[in-house]
Computed example of a mutant assay.
Amino acid sequence: MKDPIILNKYKSLINDELKFIILNDKNNQFSKFIFPYIIPSQNSNIPKRVRSSIFLEIIEGFKLNPSEFLDLACSIELIHEFSLIHDDIQDKDEIRRGAPTLWKKLGEYKSIILGNVIKNISDTITNIDTINKLTNKSRINIIKQFSNMCISMIEGQYLDINFETQQIISMNDYKNMIIKKTGALMTLAFQLPGILSGQNEQSIKQLQKLGIIFGILFQISDDLLGIWGNPIKTGKSNYSDFKNNKKTYPILLSMKKFEDKDKILFNNLLSNLNNESYLLIIDILEKYKIKSTIQKECNSYLDQAIELITKSQLTKKSKTNIVELFKYVIERTK
């Protein structure tokens, strides 16, 4: 599947800026570890830069110059990388983007430290006005937005881990976790350009809602790929979520729909996970049309998003690009 325009439009700019930031950071003793993680040597393993690209597209959509806000775009990206390092440690995931995770290569303790260094670099960016065009009020607002986002994201991660030991979780509880863990940073990427460009309160709320919808769609799409995706393309095992007892959206919907006999069979298969049991799990999920049901729900979210994008004050070109990105998220294969 072809990548949407947004993901190719800003990627090289973001990567170049990230290289500059990391290699010129005062914590240069960590650069030799951080640099190859954030800028992998193989192009196929370089992250998509979804969040930072969304931020820059909306900045441009409000007729601001994206190059003046590359530092903030990178701050968003660095927060994401920080969260992934900690997420992989907590989930004991050994593969990320087709390569060993940082903790698998360096150990948990060193990886925690490196994750914190990356977070510190991001904080340093948000605390400095590099474009010299922001008022003190705007700068304080930016710091506040990043701080609130980070608290929300950490709370979401806590809920996700806590769910692993809970037997009963409602679909609403799961969506609330998504809005915090995945959606917080997505929402920041959508609404921060509105704040920086001086949009009114209604416009900023629309952007915030778009970010929440995008976060939900992104995580649910991730959940689908975690079960039905091609590991070669996703760079992640199809067993990972099952092994970690993750209460993903397909699993929660399954528990709601399964008859008692299929619940028992499903849990028995999970306790002895291998290629054969995995295929039997897929058969049970298909029996209850779990994947197609979720895809229909995603299409409903997409309709809501398109309506909000249409009403926004963005340029026609940016509206088209963002709609394309939303469609890509629910159809992606990696």
Rank of each mutant, 00 (worst) to 15 (best):
I140G: 08
I128K: 15
K137P: 00
M153C: 11
Q145V: 08
I143K: 10
L185P: 01
M186V: 08
K181N: 06
Q199K: 05
Q167L: 13
K180I: 07
R139D: 05
N162W: 08
G194I: 04
N148C: 12
N136I: 04
Q191V: 11
T165E: 07
G183W: 05
T187F: 05
I161T: 12
K181E: 05
N141H: 14
G183H: 07
I143E: 06
S147I: 08
Q145Y: 09
Q208M: 11
L159D: 09
I168V: 11
Y158C: 08
I131G: 02
I151D: 05
S152D: 05
A184Y: 06
N176E: 13
N172Y: 10
T135W: 01
T130K: 15
S170P: 00
G156L: 03
N141M: 15
I178P: 06
F163P: 02
Q206C: 13
Q208I: 07
I151Q: 10
M177Y: 02
T135H: 01
F190R: 00
I178Y: 12
N162D: 14
L134R: 09
I169Q: 02
S197G: 07
Q199W: 00
I168N: 12
K180L: 09
Y158K: 05
I168F: 14
S197V: 02
N127H: 10
D129W: 08
M177S: 12
I151T: 08
N132I: 01
S152P: 03
M171E: 07
C150L: 12
N172A: 11
Q157G: 08
I204R: 04
Y158M: 06
N136E: 04
I204E: 01
F163S: 01
T187I: 01
T182G: 09
S147N: 09
S203F: 02
G156E: 03
G198L: 00
Y158E: 06
L196I: 00
I195Y: 12
S138L: 04
S147Q: 08
P193Y: 04
K180D: 08
I195D: 00
L207D: 04
L192S: 05
A189G: 03
E164S: 15
E201T: 07
Q206I: 11
C150M: 15
T182N: 09
